[in-house]
């Protein structure tokens, strides 16, 4: 459990971090909370020769909300997110998921930016980010761009982030009136990662029918994935228990052929858990939307 040698930088400003990353490119790696990267390095599954620690850059920690939505700095910790009044009111699913990540130590160090950049197939926040339709602000020393959630997760541990980009902020649009979001998770008893985790955002119309629904699944396949069939079934209908059940039963359809099968859960059981967690998440989201 000793990593290979590496050079370590602790820049105090974003510009300094971006300059270092531009200099070292593929040899450099950004470390945020370190709770995903450092274990991989100790196992020697990752051996970056340069580590750029962005933990000392205060400007990346802020959480703010206004009429236009919620902005979460990439270095906000799970703990800060779970306890933030702004997050709890604007994006309850995000607070709920952040409060269920791993254990206290991890929640005190791990960050939203680190979680999304790492794209662990069983991470909690990727599903929430997808369901809430968030946007990543990725910056280099020269400029910045926005990456929509639906384009961010590419494959197992792979994102749309370029080698010189650093996530600075995650934006969540305002969900509007009569919206509710929730996250439900069946945790692995060893790692506390999601065996199956589902995030749901539901918006109800004046007549009580679902005008919009976004549902995303994590832990089940190689990356967090939208459950679009589930969303389509919900849309336009009154979210009764039987509608939610029918929609939830399609939660793993998009993952067919890519369902993880390991000592913790067979593929069949994981699919089943995805359905149950979808039902739980959607039911809570509907309740929170005032349905």
């Amino acid at each position: 459990m000793v990593s290979n040698n590496f050079e370590y930088f602790a820049p105090e400003t974003f510009d300094e971090a971006a300059r270092l990353l531009a200099k070292y490119r593929d040899d450099g790696k950004i470390v945020a909370g370190g709770y995903s990267l450092i274990p991989l390095m100790k196992l020697r599954l990752a051996s970056p020769s340069v580590l750029i620690d962005i933990g000392g850059i205060d400007e990346l920690r802020s959480i703010t909300s206004n009429g236009g939505g919620l902005s979460v700095g990439s270095m906000a910790t799970y703990y800060e997110i779970s306890r933030s009044a702004a997050v709890q009111s604007a994006a309850p699913a995000l607070a709920e998921a952040a409060g269920q990540v791993a254990d206290v130590q991890v929640r005190n160090r791990g960050t939203i930016g680190g979680s999304l950049a790492h794209s662990d197939p069983a991470g909690d926040l990727p599903a929430v980010f997808l369901a809430l339709g968030g946007t990543i602000v990725a910056k280099t020393r020269r400029g910045s761009r926005e990456i929509a959630a639906d384009r961010f997760f590419v494959d197992l541990l792979t994102t749309a982030l370029r080698p010189t980009e650093i996530i600075t902020e995650i934006r969540f649009p305002s969900a509007g009136a009569r919206s509710g979001s929730a996250y439900a998770k069946f945790a692995n008893k060893a790692s506390h990662y999601a065996v199956a985790g589902v995030a749901a955002l539901v918006t109800l119309g004046a007549d009580g029918t679902v005008t919009d629904a976004r549902v995303a699944v994590t832990g089940v396949g190689s990356k967090a994935t939208r459950a679009k069939r589930t969303e389509r079934i919900l849309k336009g209908k009154e979210p009764t228990a039987s509608v939610i059940r029918r929609a939830s039963d399609r939660a793993a359809v998009e993952l067919a052929g890519d369902v993880t099968d390991d000592i913790h859960a067979s593929a069949e059981y994981r699919e089943h858990l995805a359905k149950v967690m979808a039902e739980n998440a959607i039911t809570s989201a509907v309740e929170r939307a005032g349905g």
Binding site: N188, K189, A190, S191, I263
Partner: peptide, 16 residues
């Protein structure tokens, strides 16, 4: 040994 670390070997914790 597939359960080669605490990621895969479930040690009981107070929460449960």
């Amino acid at each position: 040994l597939i359960t080669g670390s605490m990621l895969d070997y479930a040690v009981p914790n107070a929460k449960n």
